[in-house]
């Protein structure tokens, strides 16, 4: 493949790697201190539209290599959307079937996208009166399918798979190291499965032990799809607190207002989780004042128009004749 001409044999050759990184764009108007270089790494330039392409591809390739998928055995995965979209599109393009178990509060756009990408959908109601540590309904239902119909399904399990971490250790981390020419001092990201933070931090800390890793999380009871508050992180076995310097808890409404600002001020059509990460970076820049920071922007705004209108009602004004 030749990344100069950008002509590819198949869609999978477009997946990001050290030689074909997702772009990094410098932030100007929204950077409170120009002496602090701030970059956004735009993960939606990956072929299936989000940072989850990395973990999905690593998990799928691993399952194929071990003979766990194929011959009628497909995959089942609990997902809030992006992993499912990546996995479904990849699986179908490789000839496998895919069942996605989705919490009900996931936006309609993502549910429909999952179906468009080729997933069979199971929607489960979210929180009833939960007790800590019980696990989440979508994870339990996916595990049930994988256990009760093991001839039909294997569960990649993004919350536990070491491949999720390895994907970022092998691609996201080295890409950032090369793209910043080793200058990076701060890494800003959000927490979901924690594959990104654990994999990328492990690589980058290996290159530069003093690197600061800052994770943002929405306030409890939030409505930011794909992210988890630390109180919800029990479900991820990939969370390694020792790799994170600061965890900032940020009012989740800012995810939406900052995303809108990024769209309208920087021309970056970033989704709500990117908005939250930007707000975290902004606060740390005010504190640390100098450095070179990279924000990992997980996906773009296109899947979130309904959520945007819910949290910024003025966006609906003037949209009807």
């Amino acid at each position: 493949m030749n990344h100069q001409t950008r002509v590819y044999r198949d869609v999978f050759e477009m997946l990001p790697s050290e030689d074909n990184p997702t772009p990094m764009v410098r932030i100007h108007r929204m950077n409170p201190r120009p002496e602090f270089e701030l970059y956004a790494k735009l993960e939606w330039f990956s072929p299936f539209g989000s940072v989850k392409d990395r973990a999905a591809w690593a998990m799928l390739r691993d399952l194929e290599a071990r003979g766990e998928v194929g011959n009628g055995r497909g995959i089942v995965e609990p997902t809030s959307g992006n992993t499912g979209i990546s996995l479904a599109a990849m699986a179908r393009a490789r000839g496998h079937h895919m069942r996605a178990v989705v919490p009900n509060k996931v936006p309609l756009e993502k549910k429909v996208l999952l179906k468009i990408a080729g997933a069979e959908l199971d929607v489960v109601s979210d929180e009833l009166c939960p007790a800590p540590g019980l696990g989440d309904g979508s994870i339990n239902l996916a595990k049930t399918h994988a256990k009760a119909q093991s001839e039909k399904y294997v569960m990649p399990n993004q919350y536990e798979s070491e491949q999720n971490v390895l994907a970022h250790f092998r691609t996201t981390g080295p890409e950032i190291w090369r793209q910043t020419e080793g200058k990076i001092t701060h890494l800003f990201l959000s927490l979901g499965t924690c594959g990104t933070v654990t994999g990328a931090s492990r690589f980058l800390r290996g290159q530069k032990p003093g690197l600061k890793v800052i994770a943002v999380q929405p306030t409890e009871g939030h409505d930011v799809p794909g992210l988890r508050n630390v109180s919800q992180l029990g479900v991820s076995k990939l969370f390694d607190r020792s790799l994170i310097d600061d965890i900032l808890e940020i009012d989740f409404h800012l995810a939406y207002t900052r995303a809108l600002e990024l769209c309208q001020t920087e021309g970056l059509l970033a989704g709500p989780s990117s908005g939250l990460i930007y707000e975290g970076a902004r606060r740390i820049i005010e504190r640390d004042q100098a450095g070179c920071g990279v924000m990992i922007f997980p996906d773009n705004i296109f899947k979130y128009t309904a959520n945007m209108v819910k949290h910024i009602p003025s966006l609906a004004e003037g949209t009807q004749a």
């Binding site: 489960v124 109601s125 009833l128 239902l141």
Partner: peptide, 11 residues
């Protein structure tokens, strides 16, 4: 079950 589909998914 609360989720009345859980039994059919696997018991």
């Amino acid at each position: 079950d609360v989720d009345t589909r859980a039994y059919d998914a696997g018991h």
